[in-house]
Design a protein around this nucleic acid. Structure first.
Length: 504
RNA sequence: GUCCCCAUCGUCUAGCCCGGCCUAGGACACAGGCCUUUCACGCCUGCGACAGGGGUUCGAAUCCCCUUGGGGACGCCA
């Protein structure tokens, strides 16, 4: 259990606080998931807060994309979405308080000036830290600057003399210590008096009575600063749990800009992922269960999840750009495929239906007269599918007579033996005469025909597979034929002879 | 450059806090085999790691130090 499990046992409040400056990406989804899991596990509250204080870059589209992504993933929130900009007055109030109580001061240094200093430091390869030159301005000097309309920002006065170091007990990283001499007097209010993230975030977390801040490890550097703010404001800081980052295979932070859509949640939705399969995969990037279980239902994962089992090292999202089969982390595909073939039929049917509808392959009868047929078909073909989109692509032949023939399959299975041109119409005829088009009878036709002609059954079976499905792979042939029904099978077999002509 | 953090199979990880049960376990991927009418199903087998060096100890993947490697943060972004 966590460090403060006793104190917060009945009142966990966590939040996911994305900035609406882009897409919901995998890293954000994972952060949201961990927060959600923790809230659900502890019977707490999961809050969604949009941190839109960067007016320049925040967009409404991005907000909608984030909400849609979370909804799709099934990460429902209990409060919000709150918008950080709605709290601006509170943030300014806090800043005023810090100023009046001597925890902050006006800094009149110009941005250009500081940028130059920073550049110079960089070229000299020395560390740049604001030197605090405005810290000890006399009230008269400050007044004079204000009268002269010199713009000022508000900087936090890091109490280096009183507090030698800030330590925190991170739930996942343990004790983290930072000397105050290594923390610069950071800006909390811009020159237009708008608050910065470091301030707003801390104030909002306290306003929202957040008990656990669960965020990426890139937030570690901010934490000591925020603790200093909490202390100056007389607020007890929340518990922090930083989660390791997810890097790409070159160990760079995942980002939409450099990695493209493969890191966006929307992409997985489009490509045919089951939302829970993605969640399940994401949960395992940095966390593991005590007993090694990897597949979890929502309830099971909530039960098994614990902040204390989050590991400390960054993980790599192992996708290989340009690899058609492994267009994303192979393990993620493995999760999706496993869910597709093992989830309750009732649930997968819903996804299959939606997929077919979107591709004009849906027929109303699949819910009435052909309901059982549809169920059986979905169950038959899902075994080897990796993605929901496979139902409309690889499975197209089940739902439409217009489908593609894989040239390699045609060559391999139909053009392989010239006798097939004669055989196919023959056994198509035999099948056509079948009273009952069931597994036994259909198989018998193939077996007996093979015997009679003294050829391997496989020759006929493979030819038939390609003739009726256009492919060389798929479910067991006889199941497939019975599923398609006599009429379609016979017609497709007869038509397939034309394919052979074309190719030979 | 400064500060913070991390380091087990190619990847995700278990084990580490409380040294011996570790000839280091699982999963994905990969390879081979089986089943079979095909296959991206299933089953079996294999491949494959404690970054390096010093300590401490009877004994170290586990504790300590150093080196190396990696990541993150150093904005009037969030």
């Amino acid at each position: 259990m966590t460090i403060d499990s006793d104190r917060n046992v009945d009142s966990v409040r966590v939040r996911f606080a994305p900035s609406p400056t882009g897409y919901l990406h995998l890293g954000g989804a994972r952060t949201a998931l961990y927060n959600w899991l923790w809230a659900r596990k502890r019977g707490g509250v999961f809050i969604l807060r949009i941190e839109d204080t960067d007016v320049e870059r925040s967009t409404q589209d991005s907000v909608e994309e984030i909400l849609a992504g979370l909804k799709w993933l099934g990460l429902d929130w209990d409060e919000g979405p709150y918008f950080q900009t709605d709290n601006l007055s509170k943030h300014k109030e806090a800043a005023d308080k810090l100023l009046h109580e001597g925890h902050a001061y006006r800094c009149f240094c110009s941005k250009e000036d500081l940028d130059n200093q920073r550049k110079e430091a960089e070229s000299k390869k020395v560390a740049f830290m604001y030197d605090g030159r405005c810290r000890n301005l006399t009230p008269e000097q400050v007044q004079k600057n204000i009268e002269n309309n010199i713009l000022s920002v508000l900087r936090f006065k890091v109490p280096r003399d009183q507090v030698p170091s800030v330590t925190l007990e991170d739930v996942v990283y343990g004790k983290i210590e930072k000397r105050t001499k290594d923390i610069e007097d950071f800006v909390i209010l811009r020159s237009d008096q708008s608050p910065l993230y470091i301030l707003s975030n801390a104030v909002d977390d306290s306003l929202d009575r957040i008990t656990h801040v669960i965020r990426g490890a890139d937030g570690i550097a901010n934490t000591p600063k925020q603790i200093l703010i909490y202390n100056a404001l007389g607020i007890t800081p929340p518990t922090f749990a930083h989660m390791p980052l997810t890097l790409d295979n070159k160990k760079a932070k995942l980002s939409k800009r450099v990695h493209g859509e493969v890191v966006t949640v929307a992409y997985y939705r489009r490509k045919g992922f089951l939302p829970w399969a993605l969640c399940n995969f994401l949960a395992l990037l940095g966390w593991s269960s005590q007993d090694g279980q990897e597949f979890f239902s929502r309830e099971e994962l909530i039960e098994a999840f614990d902040l204390s089992r989050i590991n400390r090292h960054n993980s790599i999202f192992n996708y290989i750009p340009g690899d058609a089969k492994n267009w994303t982390d192979p393990k993620a595909i493995h999760f999706n495929a496993t869910y597709i073939r093992s989830m309750p039929l009732d649930e997968i049917e819903v996804y299959a239906k939606k997929e077919l509808e979107e591709n004009n392959l849906w027929d109303q009868s699949y819910e009435s007269t052909k309901k059982e047929w549809f169920r059986a078909t979905v169950d038959l073909i899902r075994t080897r599918y990796h993605l929901i989109t496979d139902f409309s692509s690889k499975g197209r032949y089940c739902f439409s007579d217009v489908f593609e023939f894989d040239p390699k399959a045609v060559k391999k299975n139909l053009c392989q033996d010239s006798k097939l041109v004669a055989y196919i119409p023959e056994f198509a005829q035999l099948l056509d005469h079948l009273q009952e088009f069931n597994l036994e009878n259909v198989e018998a036709v193939f077996r007996e025909f093979a015997l009679e002609k003294d050829v391997k059954a496989g020759l006929l079976i493979n030819a038939a597979r390609t003739a009726v499905s256009g492919s060389s792979v798929g479910p067991g042939l006889f199941e497939m034929l019975v599923m398609l029904g006599k009429e379609r099978v016979v017609a497709r077999l007869r038509d397939s002879v034309n394919l052979i002509d074309k190719h030979s």
